[in-house]
Design a protein around this nucleic acid. Structure first.
Lengths: 143, 143
DNA sequence: TTAGAATAGTTGTATATGCAACTATTCTAA
DNA sequence: TTAGAATAGTTGCATATACAACTATTCTAA
């Protein structure tokens, strides 16, 4: 006895899929146009910035940005290669790392935000009233 | 004089990003669990099914599923290798192709739908009322 | 205490994506 | 008509992602 999804939920899912793709493409494009790295880098740096100077375990970071461990491992590789973060061996748990943002990482964050935020505003903010945005958030939070 | 995005729109964008990622992951996972191909294949096959037996030009298909031409070219390669679609040289325009779904493509579509739809229902449909789904669609359509 | 399970992270390999350059054909304006 | 621009699609290369197998460490229960 499988439940069929309603027409409304299929339609909504399709819209979610399309809207996300469209917006993400625009945001990434805006960043690339300014020779800035992709959004994923921003997400990592922002989470680390919030926990600065304590840093975050790699698995904690993965949970926050919804990225699985093998991809995160390589993302951190790239960031570390660009001196934006540092891996420290974790004292409390010999298996793990603590990741901390560097000063250069903080600078990049500051450089990315205006581009990122402007793109959100242009492609998202101006199209929705603040009530609509709030309603959207509230509904999406249930998922 | 750059416009700052409101707090509401940033919050909504973040939620959109997260919700999409979470759902997509679940849907792809459900398909993989049943040894079925990824969602992108479904999207292509569905569009072609709708236009059967006329078929679609490659660029038309690209517009429908929001995929750029070089990635689409390779996606079609993979589908064609699996005999799910066929490329025909286009009579009216010697530069282009017409893509048509095959009988096997139609069969795959039929096999994927129950898995896809069940995943939507489980991870999306049951969490939102039909009013909420409709509201969500309406807002997302503006983007 | 200690063997086996569980956890944190890395790496090899296959596949998918993005970008730029390319071929072939069609359109357009002198 | 015809040279140059524009369009449709493909391909080489670099990068990103997914999956499975791996190492190293910590936890747990006899």
């Amino acid at each position: 006895m499988r439940e069929e999804p309603t027409q409304e939920s299929i339609e909504a899912w399709i819209q979610l899929h399309r809207a996300h793709r469209l917006l993400l493409e625009k945001v990434e494009h805006a960043l690339k146009n300014k020779s800035l790295p992709p959004l994923a880098w921003y997400d990592v740096l922002l989470e680390l910035h919030r926990e600065n100077p304590r840093g975050l375990r790699q698995y904690e970071l993965g949970e926050k940005i919804l990225l699985n461990k093998h991809n995160l491992s390589r993302l951190i590789d790239r960031l570390e290669k660009n001196r934006l973060v540092i891996r420290h061996r974790c004292k409390e748990d010999g298996r793990g790392n603590k990741i901390r943002i560097t000063h250069e990482g903080q600078n990049l964050l500051k450089k990315m935000w205006p581009v990122y935020s402007q793109s959100i505003q242009e492609n998202f903010g101006v199209l929705l009233s603040s009530d609509e945005s709030s309603a959207l958030s509230a509904i999406l939070k249930k998922l």
